[in-house]
């Protein structure tokens, strides 16, 4: 079918363009369609900017660096808060956790591309995280982490 031949005709080009040290290996790994779509994606990415296609919203290197700067800044604030914690009293832990969550979100959304990628992937990950948070918070409640008295209720 047309698509197949498309991919087929593109592949050698893509591979050829990338071979550096001479193709000593025939690179015989046959790609699956998933890879085939990546091949096409790669073809598209041969354009100077990595925009375009479904993944068109991929950040640029500069944007990645900005995000990293934000991450670094948050970390710095976190450490700073650690040193002034006495002034903040009880508000201290939730603030830190919020900041960690923001960092978590930034890495997940941008570096791991969850913001741009297929929804299925997000679901897998979010399911894991949400499930983990819910069940372990219940465990905490059961085992009295949040109460000052340790151990059983009785």
């Amino acid at each position: 079918m047309s698509d197949t031949t498309d991919a087929a005709s593109e592949t050698p080009t893509a591979a050829g363009a990338t071979t550096l040290t001479g193709s000593d290996t025939p690179a015989p790994v046959p790609a699956d369609p998933g890879e085939r779509h990546l091949v096409e994606e790669a073809v598209e990415h041969r354009r100077p900017t990595p925009e375009g296609g479904e993944h068109g919203a991929h950040p640029t290197d500069a944007q990645y660096m900005k995000i990293a700067l934000v991450l670094a800044a948050i970390t710095a604030v976190e450490v700073a808060i650690y040193y002034v914690k006495s002034d903040l009293g009880l508000g201290f832990a939730p603030i830190l956790i919020t900041m960690a969550a923001v960092k978590f979100f930034l890495v997940g959304a941008f570096f791991m591309h969850l913001r741009f990628d297929n929804r299925v992937l997000r679901r897998f990950f979010v399911t894991g995280i949400v499930l983990a948070i819910i069940i372990y918070v219940i465990v905490f409640l059961l085992l009295g982490v949040f109460t000052s008295t340790h151990g059983a209720h009785s």
């Binding site: 079918m1 698509d3 197949t4 498309d6 991919a7 699956d32 369609p33 998933g34 890879e35 085939r36 779509h37 990546l38 096409e40 990628d117 297929n118 299925v120 992937l121 897998f124």
Partner: peptide, 13 residues
């Protein structure tokens, strides 16, 4: 293009 049902490659999924 005969991609997977979800559109995501097996490895990534």
């Amino acid at each position: 293009s005969p991609v997977t049902n979800t559109g995501v490659s097996n490895e990534k999924l």
